[in-house]
Design a binder for these strands. Sequence first.
DNA 1: CGGGTCATTGAGTCAGCTCAAGGCTCGTGG
DNA 2: CCACGAGCCTTGAGCTGACTCAATGACCCG
Lengths: 245, 245
Amino acid sequence: MAHLPSNVISCHFNNKTSCENCRLNQLCLPISLQINEIDKLDAIIKRKRPIGKGDAVFHLGERFSAIYAVRSGSLKTVNVTVDGQEQVTGFYLPGEIFGLDGLGNNIHTNSAVALETSAICEIPFSRLEELTIKIPSLQRHIFQVLGQEIASEQSLITHLSTSTAEERVAALLISISSRNHRRQLSGTDFRLPMSRTDMASYLGVTIETVSRILSHFQKKKLVTIKMKDIIITDMQALRSLAKVS
Amino acid sequence: MAHLPSNVISCHFNNKTSCENCRLNQLCLPISLQINEIDKLDAIIKRKRPIGKGDAVFHLGERFSAIYAVRSGSLKTVNVTVDGQEQVTGFYLPGEIFGLDGLGNNIHTNSAVALETSAICEIPFSRLEELTIKIPSLQRHIFQVLGQEIASEQSLITHLSTSTAEERVAALLISISSRNHRRQLSGTDFRLPMSRTDMASYLGVTIETVSRILSHFQKKKLVTIKMKDIIITDMQALRSLAKVS
DNA sequence: CGGGTCATTGAGTCAGCTCAAGGCTCGTGG
DNA sequence: CCACGAGCCTTGAGCTGACTCAATGACCCG
């Protein structure tokens, strides 16, 4: 095994990493696979050099050719409305799959942008399709990933239609919290990867409203916030505010 | 084969209908298939007895076992929020596929309810999965249907986040119009299948707001409305209001 | 033709927006 | 190691689009 260079960027970057030894393999695509099947999946996955904050994995309008998994860091997907405004449509954390927006008509309808230095796996879609025909459980899992994306978007739709600004902010905090928890990280004490502007755009409110609501949550002793660092001090209350059971 | 009763319901109902001779086969699943492949798809599709207005095809919480295509009529999918409110998450017209909401975790997260007397095709998902392994172009098409669902939900999300009530109503009218047009029907002169209440719920506004906006559109000579019958008299202006190119 | 559902219209209220000013943070360079 | 600047975040004041509450009108089915 080659000796790894010691600077920060490269220590995250290891070409030899495989799905088999990836910490995230119980969250990501391999979850449904046998060892020998994982090897086949592994063979088609390209592990890219880490990308810096603000860099795009793909741009709106580009031809769809692959889906992506987050290995480390975090990303947002961004849409541009007809009148030129940016609109954040999703946040993606390690173990999560993104880039599905191009599947419908072979053109990406969003750009994917790193929120911090991030490592991603690229999975060429045509190769993946071939593989799913050989490995039915993988096909089932891809369908499931797509289905989950649909379900999570529907719940966002419901939220945007029916919730107040306060409920939206609470729900986002709960969502990030539970996704961290799923990765064996703290669900109460973490760093928000996105800016207030991104949160506001995603939630369909203004940045001022997000800020005011976070201050208000702090006043009510639900959370402790210092910029992007957040500690949830009353999960119960926050959950009920978010209308999440 | 039994003689069919002659009442109104049954005259729409014909077991012999096949994908091959269905008027909608250039919109629906068969679009990507050869004749002999269509026969295979046909073999797994169950054509159900027409259902009446208000009847459900599946209920929230039920086990996911099939996806559905609208043959005639129209349906809505409905979600129930934590506090017990109904929320419409989608409208489905002939040739469109619904029921994908259960794919993620094998449980339907919505109910599907007929807006009028409707005929639907049921496609058992496990049979469809088997078939996609034998017919790669069908797999590709299913992925595409899922991708389109994801894309259309994302565009709804963007709309709900950024649009005013007026823009939302305009966008819904344009959407119904273009979906009618796709079916070779008039894109300017049609009947809205859903109630004001359903429109309002789907758009995330109140019923009064929908009503006021429709009246306002009429005053501005964009449309002529008589309850559910609508004539779009200035498509250009309505499109630009909807912020759709 | 009568009752119930669905749709329209009006008046007053409020959540979240806009505009504006000031504070905090962090990276950079002297 | 500190000073500085640019971007990000917070807070305040006033405004407005959409909501709530309420009453009336239109349609449909038995």
